[in-house]
Every structure is written in C-alpha cells, then in structure tokens.
C-alpha cells in the first residue's frame, strides 16, 4: 500500500492547534483492506464449501450407484432405483419451452415500451413490470395450481386437442392439467417480467443518435430495433436471457406445484405429468427413506449445481466475446 503512513503534519496554522490523530490509525488502512478482502473472499469460500459438502454427502451414492443415475429413467427407492434422467429431461424441456415463450414476449414488450408508446405509459408499465419481477415464485405456484391447472385441464388442453394440432403426439393423452405444458407456461410467466425489465433497460441505453442514424437511412421501426438497437444491446439482452434461463433451470416452487411431479418417465406428450430436478428434490427429499436415497438426492443437487455453473461460465465467456465483437458497451 502506497498511502504513506509518514506523518507530515504542518507546523503552525491549524495543524499546530489540533493534535494529529493519524498515529492512532497507522494500521487503519492495511487493516481495512485486509478486512474487505476477507469479506469478498467469503463468496469464494462459501462456494468451495458448498462443493465440498455436496460432494462429501453424495459420495455414498456416487460410490454405490456409479453413473447409473445418469443413464436410468426410473426413480424408486423401494427397488433402489435412483434414475436422474427423467428429472434432467424434465428440467431441460420445461426450461427450453419456457424460454421459447418468454423471450419473444419479453422482447416484444420491451420494443413496445422503448419505441412505440408514450414515454409516460412506458415508465408506468415499465415500473410495474420491474416490481412483478420481484414477486416470489411461490405466488406463481399458487396461481398456477389453483387457476392455471383447472383452466388447462378443462378448457385449453381439450381445445388444443380438438384442433388439428391435437393429432400430434406431443399433444396426446388425456388432459390432466398438472403437466409439462402447464409447468412451462407458469415458468415462462415467472421469468417474463425479469427478462422484459432488463431488456427494456438496455434498449433504452442505445444512444439516440445511433437510432436516428438508423431511421435516417430509411429503416422501419422493426429494422432499427432488430438490426441496430438489438445488436447494440446484445450483450445486455443476452445477459438477461442467460439469467432468466439460469432461474428457469433451478426454479422449484412454480414448477413442482404444477408439473404433477413424481412421475419419473420421459413424457411422450406435453400434456403428461413429469418432474424436474428441483421438483424431485423438493418432493422426495423430506420423505427420503434411506441413507442411500438421501445421498442420491444430494448428488442430484450437485448435478444441478454443476449444470448451472457450467452454463454460467459458458455464458460469461460468450458474453465477454460478444461485447468485444460488437464493440458495444451495454
């Protein structure tokens, strides 16, 4: 540290009357610095502790079951089957479906807020959406189980099956309401406000002059949005999408309440019940019968952690590259 601790209090003037206080704190600066480093390091410490603890507690399952969970679908503690494939499949499926619904919707709303409506309307609606992003997932779960599930079961799913789409296998089976389809929709609505809010923020940061230049070239609103603003805000929007995706991957309540969990199959139809990693954890862990089951579920949590971590790292690297490529600062 360079902020020299040599006292150079001025003789005479104000310095002479007040006693120099700095001797008291001669070690203040290095102490403060090390203290903040220690605080900053707790995050890293906590993460390594998390990895260590999860690995230690899933060791039994890893040791006994090997890679069997990753290749098996069935989960049945009574027969010592701890397949994770059904959970992993459900997690990826619901996440992908939810993103397919949420991202276009979010971008459409952001486009509307930034380019098309009166600034005042934009502010009010924008603030509302930001606040909805803070609504906890249990609320979405409640709404999902009591409103969406009956609606799906009685009206929407039978209706879809009555249309030509119903002949497709992915919309087959008897509509139960608690299924992959409902879970994906509730999940998409949960991440929608979040992605919208961030997209709107970054799109608003696109410099006026760049947009004017775009319109000045004879572009339509959509062309300016898609070819210029979106590129400018690419890193920011991608960041929002990645964060939303990360949330969707690990979301527990909103999904486990409506997916009709504990159906350990690879669903053939979207109207079939299923499960996700986090739903499996939430529903089976409290009831877990044996040490091996507990251990295998902790292993499942570890797998979920690894998935999200790998995903985060890849996303970060990609984002850094994207920022360099477009030269954008957003």
């Amino acid at each position: 540290m360079s902020s020299g601790e040599v006292d150079i209090s001025t003789p005479g003037g104000a310095g002479a009357q007040t006693r120099p206080r700095r001797h008291h704190f001669a070690f203040g600066d290095p102490l403060f610095r090390w203290f903040t480093i220690a605080c900053a390091a707790t995050v890293a410490l906590a993460m390594f502790l998390l990895i260590g603890v999860l690995v230690k507690n899933s060791w039994l399952a890893i040791h006994v079951l090997g890679i069997k969970p990753l290749t098996h679908v069935a989960y049945n503690p009574d027969t010592n089957q701890y397949g994770a494939l059904s959970s992993l499949f459900g997690t990826f499926l619901t996440t992908i479906l939810a993103m397919l619904i949420a991202v276009p919707l979010a971008l459409a709303i952001a486009l509307l807020l930034v380019e098309l409506v009166h600034p005042l309307v934009s502010r009010v609606v924008g603030t509302t959406i930001e606040m909805l992003a803070a609504v906890p997932s249990i609320i979405f779960g409640m709404w999902g189980i009591f409103i969406v599930v009956p609606l799906m079961q009685r009206h929407i799913e039978p209706w879809i099956q009555a249309t030509p789409l119903g002949r497709l296998g992915i919309f087959g089976g008897s509509p139960v309401g608690v299924d992959v389809f409902t879970a994906s929709i509730v999940l998409s609505l949960m991440i929608l406000p979040f992605i919208t809010a961030v997209s709107r923020d970054v799109l608003q940061m696109v410099p006026k002059v760049v947009k004017e230049a775009g319109y000045g070239m004879g572009s339509t609103t959509y062309e300016v949005m898609r070819k210029i603003s979106m590129r400018y805000a690419l890193a920011g929007i991608a960041g929002a999408v990645f964060l939303g995706l990360g949330r969707a991957l690990g979301e527990t309540m909103a999904v486990s309440m409506v997916i009709g969990a504990n159906f350990f199959t690879i669903p053939h139809s979207l109207f079939q019940s299923g499960t996700t990693v986090s739903a499996t954890l939430a529903l089976n862990f409290p009831e877990s019968q044996s040490k091996l089951e507990t251990s295998s579920l902790i292993e499942l949590a570890l797998i979920l952690f690894v998935i999200t971590m790998v995903f985060q790292v890849v996303a970060q690297l990609w984002l850094a590259r994207a920022r360099r490529m477009t030269g954008s600062r957003a």
């Binding site: 410099p207 004017e212 230049a213 000045g216 070239m217 004879g218 400018y232 477009t326």
Partner: peptide, 21 residues
C-alpha cells in the same frame, strides 16, 4: 413514403454514429 424519402436523403449527425457491427 418516409422509407424511400430517407433513402434518397442521407444524413450525417453531429456525433459519429456507426452501427454496432
């Protein structure tokens, strides 16, 4: 027709405004 008009009339702004590409 603003799109055609703005194709026929180019504009350069005070601040350089390269597109992010």
């Amino acid at each position: 027709d603003l799109l055609s008009l703005r194709r026929r009339i180019g504009m350069i702004f005070q601040k350089p405004s390269p597109f992010p590409m």
